[in-house]
Each structure stands twice: as structure tokens, then as C-alpha cells.
Amino acid sequence: MPKITYVEHNGTEHEVEVPIGTSIMQGAVNHLVPGIEGDCGGLCACGTCHVYIPGEWVSKCGEPDELEQGMLEFAFDVDDSSRLSCQIKVSDDMEGLRIRMPPRQY
């Protein structure tokens, strides 16, 4: 299971092993990582699992599709590295991934 580090907006880090095939959002929710809500359960419908993916990881995490881009409009403090973490499936080449979180999800 790849180890993923979730970095809260205040800098608090949570290193979590997330099973391959589950989403980054689910990994956070299952391990009670604060700052990622996932209200809609992963339907790409709520924009409350917003995270920032560092540039060097973009190729492994992929780009947001049109639906996700639309939902990102409703997220808070969006920038070019913004993604909805429910739309990123964990794969074995994500070992060591560090994602950052916005100050809030609403």
C-alpha cells in the first residue's frame, strides 16, 4: 500500500497507507484525516475534497476532467494545482505522494 502524506493547511502532516484502487479522498476519510470532507461520498458532486497536487506529481495523478473542473469552481481557494481528491485513484507509483489542503472546504 502506498504511503501518502496529507498536509493540512496549518502544516500538520498525516502519513497514511492507502490501498491501491481507493481514492485519495477515501484514504483521508478512512483515517480521519481532518480537512478533507468528501460530503457526496466520491460522486464528484460537492467539491469538499479539494486538495493541491504538487507539480512533480501531476503526471501520476492526472488532470481533472470537465466535470471535475466544473465542480472545482465551487471549491474554496482554487489554483492551478487544485484537484478533487475523490477523482484520484491511488496507484502503486504514488508511494511518497504529498498533498496539501486548502484552509477550508466550504
Binding site: D39, C40, L43, A45, C46, G47, T48, G70, M71, E73, F74
Partner: peptide, 19 residues
């Protein structure tokens, strides 16, 4: 968004999205 939601009144985001 108004246009999109009018076209898909049952879209899942209708339950979660707020403005």
C-alpha cells in the same frame, strides 16, 4: 451553472452544492 442545472435537475451535485 443555472443552465446546466436546469438541464439536469437530478444531478447529484444538486444535493451538495451551495452558493
Amino acid at each position: 451553472w443555472l443552465q446546466r442545472w436546469a438541464e439536469t435537475p437530478d444531478a447529484p451535485e444538486m444535493d451538495f452544492v451551495h452558493l
